[in-house]
């Protein structure tokens, strides 16, 4: 039944895309404020492991989501402290956040490897085996719908609210924003923590629903893909979502290829998303003539008295 397979592929695409999208959207918000956070991979891991641990110990799924989101956000505040308050190099700090996050999550999750979740994040409706596109759309778990909602909210807030315009202003030109009386440091700090919270949400989606168990390094590079998605999406929420769907599709396609009769090695297929990302980045850069939509002040620490 090719139809059932296609619907399965669609379902898997949505789920893989959700995971990538939430983290990318968080990074988008952080970067819009002028802070580059390369620690997405680490933040997702922290959110994933703390959420999973809470779920195993308390069997309270709501609390697990909350803990995952908050701990990841708190973890991101290390980056905010080092780069916003202490004005240190954003690239270094972000990279170390990834290394620290992966190590910390492995340490925390050591005793949880192989444990099963009693309650995982279930779909919002009772449909467990969707057999049509519609059923796929109505059978996702709450985080999926939250992601869709967050996409609209983020886009709206950035474009149409004073808070959003100010956030973007800070990322575009922190010096001018500062002279307009906008709070540069506070805005960037908040944006970094919000980015962390989103990464945490992505993390709990991973361990409470997508693959409901815990192993080391189970984020397997999704944080980095999320970073690439922000560039891919030209720092726009809707285009980032589109990119997430594309990458989600590729991730979902890999294990299914053989059932469609392709003789490609699954190992080679697995690297296609990364190859495509590079290609897309190159095409975007050529096509846009360097104007990729990146916030102008990204990566530049702000100190008011710098002359």
């Amino acid at each position: 039944m090719i139809d059932i397979q296609l619907i399965g592929l669609f379902n898997a695409t949505l789920q893989a895309a959700t995971l990538l999208f939430i983290a990318a959207l968080g990074e988008l918000i952080t970067e819009k404020s002028g802070i580059l956070n390369l620690g997405v991979e680490g933040m997702i891991s922290v959110g994933a492991v703390t959420g999973f641990m809470t779920a195993v110990n308390t069997e309270n799924i709501f609390l697990a989501v909350l803990v995952g989101v908050l701990s990841s956000s708190a973890f991101a505040s290390i980056h905010a402290l080092v780069t916003v308050v202490l004005k240190q190099d954003q690239t270094v700090s972000g990279l170390i956040l990834t290394i620290l996050g992966l190590a910390l999550s492995s340490l925390l999750g050591k005793n949880y490897v192989g444990k099963k979740l009693v309650t995982k994040l279930e779909g919002v409706t009772s449909v467990t085996d969707p057999s049509s596109i519609l059923e796929v759309l109505i059978s996702q778990n709450i985080i999926f719908y939250l992601a869709v909602l967050l996409m609209f909210i983020t886009s709206f807030v950035l474009k149409h609210t004073m808070f959003g315009r100010r956030l973007e202003a800070v990322g575009e030109d922190s010096r001018s924003s500062d002279s307009m009386g906008l709070k540069v440091a506070k805005t960037q700090f908040i944006a970094t923590c919000v980015g962390g919270a989103f990464a945490g949400l992505s993390g709990v989606y991973l361990t409470l629903s997508y693959v409901p168990y815990w192993t080391d390094n189970m984020t397997s590079g999704r944080g980095w893909i999320a970073l690439a998605l922000v560039i891919f999406g030209g720092w726009k929420p809707y285009r980032t979502a589109l990119g997430a769907l594309l990458f989600g599709f590729l991730e979902a396609l890999v294990p299914r290829l053989q059932t469609y009769g392709f003789e490609l090695s699954p190992y080679i297929v697995k690297i296609t998303p990364y190859v495509i990302t590079i290609l897309v980045l190159v095409i975007l850069t050529i096509y846009k003539g360097g104007k990729t939509g990146a916030p102008k002040n990204i990566g530049v620490p702000f100190f008011r008295e710098n002359r």
Binding site: L38, T91, G221, W224, L227, A228, I231, Y267, I268, K270, I271, Y274, V275, T277, I278, L281, V282, T285, I286, G290
Partner: peptide
């Protein structure tokens, strides 16, 4: 082309690991 090297060098890790 001026493509950000942080992302591309990172992505090659996954490509080479796949290979």
């Amino acid at each position: 082309f001026g493509v950000n090297e942080i992302i591309t060098t990172l992505l090659t890790n996954y490509i080479v690991f796949g290979i």
